[in-house]
Amino acid sequence: MSLALPVYRFRLEPYLEFAKKAFAREATYRFEVFTNVGSLILRIYLMRMVWLALYAQNAAPQGIALHQILTYTVIALLMSLILEVDGTRMIREKLREGTIATDFMKPISPALYFFSDGLGQTLLHGILIVPSLLVALLMVHIDVPPPAALAAFAVSFVLGYLVNFMLNFCMNCVAFWTLESFAVQLIVRWCSDLLSGQIIPLLFFPGILQQIVLALPFAAIYSTPLLIYIGKIPPGGYVEALLVQVGWLLVFAAAGTVIWRAAQRRLVVQGG
């Protein structure tokens, strides 16, 4: 009997399908989706109260006016609809349940599978931005920047998304060694919440501390796109700001590749 040797070549179809299924899967958790929007609206409302109270005492710290800080806050929270999705948390879950081996028994690249799944989840959560934005507009006035800033913001947001995605991917892969990486995840999440500029603009940090937090990779996630949006990074600074983000993306992509290779090696040597 002669055996025809199948030749493996890359096909996009499975990955598109993974993204579609992830989208459909997230959509089945309707309650979670709606509470997500609900809690976001609540957070916008509360943050508005906080800033109104603070600004009543102290006018425009760091040259950020009230309308700017409110815009910053709302846009940050809308971004969080996408950025708080940990698209590759499935890696952790599969390692804990011991089901990751079955993904390696299929003719696919498991890493690309996890990425496409994450992308599908992102798209579903991305859609939620529209209704959330509409409700937010009823409560707060949001500045709309000139088209150039808007375009730069869009590019910067995508870069920030990718940096965040790769950072999460690296964290999730730690579970290949520890089985449980929730503690690591939690620490990184806390740092990231505070140091990424999601809650307060990094420009509010004093002196040397501000220099430090702006130089950290977390700033590439929220701070850069947001500062572009509210005009605190002027058009002349776009190229530099975006290049720094690209730099961080390359760093995390490289780290992700190294960690993933090591994780695969560990899996095939030590078992799943």
Binding site: L5, Y8, E97, T99, T102, M105, K106, P107, I108, S109
Partner: peptide, 14 residues
Amino acid sequence: KENARNIGVVFGQR
């Protein structure tokens, strides 16, 4: 991956 095309796997537990 090539091998994966030739095989099917069923685990009772997973």
